[in-house]
Every structure is written in structure tokens, then in C-alpha cells.
Design a protein around this nucleic acid. Sequence first.
DNA 1: TCTGGGGTCCTAGGACCC
DNA 2: TCTGGGGTCCTAGGACCC
Length: 394
Amino acid sequence: MKRLILHVDVNNAFLSWTAVDRLENGETFDIRTVPSIIGGEEESRTGIVLAKSMLAKRLGIRTAEPIYFAKQKCKDLLVFPSDFDVYNKYSDALYEILTNYTDKIERFSIDECFLDMTSSLLGKTIEEIAKEIQLRVYKELKFTVNIGISSTKILAKTASDLEKPNRIHTLYLNEIERKMWPLPVNELFMVGKKSVDKLNSMKINTIGDLAKTDPKLIIKKFGKTGIMMHNYANGIDSSDVIHTKQRPKGIGNETTLAQDLADYNKVCEYLLPLVEKTMYRLRKEKMSGTVIAVKIKTKDFQILTKQKKLHAATDSTKEVCEVAKELLRDVLKNHHIRLIGIRVDGLVDNNEVQLSFFDTKNTDKQHRLDCSIDKMKDKFGYGMITRGSDLSKS
DNA sequence: TCTGGGGTCCTAGGACCC
DNA sequence: TCTGGGGTCCTAGGACCC
């Protein structure tokens, strides 16, 4: 049976949501009406563009470019900080509205959802439903969305990207030749910069070029990803809209340092709070991890990682701290680094972790300590409670 | 000039086993 | 003395997404 998929994509999400939130808090000026961006702080060396207004876009400002460049393109560019609590609030509100239309919804990212409408049309056309969603979101939440309509997720997603903002596009199989094939190949999902360079060197410049190239050539050059790329270019994608909430496979935190550091002890001072945060999040998920990884980015942007698989899954802050410090020692060497990060991978649900692991008195005591600190953080605020020195002792 | 932070998946090489 | 191949697990790195 032919499926009917919608892809709902918030226009300039972080910027729109910041604008709406400001207006709700009594501001009268709508930052969507001028060149403006959401960005990091240049002083803390996190100064890149996270989102831009339409007017900023028109001046050539791009997502992920340094704010320094963006300001050169527009002298009186307004810059606002990001606030993920606000974004999550509007993301949830959007999701809530979408649940009125089908129960097969996949939250693909903070600002994108797929809806499988195959059995939820209720006598309406898919276009009518898309229009209804778009109007209702704008009426109730005051921001615009693009909606793509097709028979597969990838095509619906490509459709929602066609022309912005506040537009609805269809991209059915019989339309791909006209609407998708002329697009530059970088606009295809999963074709990033590295692949574009390789494809261009093969004289493949548009999605149509890719679609019409002998798949054997693509597979030879790109392996498994090549099969996927070639399928996507031809509108082939059998993946389902996944309603059930996915459990995370890994959780991590990383931070850019205010200045480059090479000293192990100083880097540790940054690392340990990151471990604490990651483990707090892990315990919130009621999960434990088996692989601990430390990541550094050197001053010349080389990324190095060092990881270790544990014999048993853990959710203990102390245990992960100890491993993380070892890994940091191994990977840091004499590098001057600008970023430090920690990840816990190979996650398993706590109720699937063998009980024997929690049996020993020591880990049990440690677990209770972690949990009581978590509770205090929940009660008094995450930043109000710190663990003091028990983590830095080796 | 300046280059975030959160993820997922894939690949390739080495160790080890049969 | 010279020499297998298949499979799994682990690690490091890389590509991609938003």
C-alpha cells in the first residue's frame, strides 16, 4: 500500500522560538523582522551561528559559520544567546499539536517531525491536513513551519526543504525528476561536504546526476553509504515512521575551553564536571554504560579519542571519573587542546543489568550516594550542588 | 579572519580464537 | 620451514545529521 508521510520542519527554529518567547515575555520587538542570529559567545570561543533570520540569510549569513564572519556581512547584526529550555518548550508544544492528527509520529530532531498519515486521513486530502497543521501551529504557537508531503520519509523531508518559509510542498515519485533531480547533490540527505567533493570529481553535480549514475560505481567509491545515497537520489526509502521513543545509544558532554590548555590537572578541572553531568543524565534515563570515551580537540582542530570497554555496565560517577582520568592521561600527551569531552556508550537499561553487579557493598554505597546527590540537584538546582573533592582524588 | 555541542552509524586494523 | 581463512571483539577515526 502506498504510504502518505508528512515532514514538519520549523522555519529557523531557534531564532523563531527565541522571537516568540521574547514577545510572550512582553518584548514588543520581533527579532524575525531584522537581520539577527542565535549564536554562541566569541569570548568563550564558541562563536558560531546556530540559526539566522530570513533577512540575515539574505545577506549571505550561513548556519555554523563564525559570528565574526557573519558580522562582517552585516554591521548591525543582532546576536542572541541560545536557550534550550525555551526550545524544548516549543518543540513539545509543536509535538502536542501534531498528536491530534495521527498517533504515528516520529520526533526526528528538536524541530522536525515525521507523521505517517496513511490511515489517518479521515476523509480529508493530505494537502488539506498539511494546511490545517500549518495554520493551527501558527495560530496557537506563532511560528511558521514548512511541510513536505510524499510517500517516503526522505522525499517528504526533501520536500519540506524546497522553498521556505511557511510553505507546503509535495514530492511524489513522479515529481522527483522535475523537482529534485535538478538540485545540487549536496542537498540530498546524507551527502555532506566530503561526499560532495568526491561526487563532483566524478562529474556528479546534481541529485539527478547521482540518480542516473551506475550504482556499482557509487558503491565502489562509497561502500554501504553509496547504496543509500543512490537509493535516496531515486526516491527509494522504505524506512518507517518510528513512533516509539528511542532509547539513547550513548550520552556525552563536551566543552570548548576559554583558552588552549596542555596541563593535565587543569584539563581535569574541566573534565570532571562534564563526567558528573553525563552521569547525571545517564541515571535520569535509568541506564548504565559499558564504554567510556574521552575526546580532545587539539589547538589545530585535530580530534583524538581514547576509549575503554568496561567488564560490566556502570552508572557510577566515581567509577567513570577514574576511567576518564586514565583515558585523558593517555590521550592528552603534550597536546595543547581547545576542547575536552566525555561520552558513555554501549548503554543498557538498568533493569537489564545483572543484579550481581549492584550486589557488592561498595558499588551499592556509591550508587546511593550518586542518587542522593541527583535528588539534591533536582531539588535545589543542578548548579547549586557540587560534589567537592571526592572526584578529583585519584 | 574563525571555526558548538548533541548525537548515530560505518570502516579499518589488530588481537584473538578455532 | 612456510604457511590458511573465517569469525568476533575492541579501538580509533571519520562522515553525517540537526
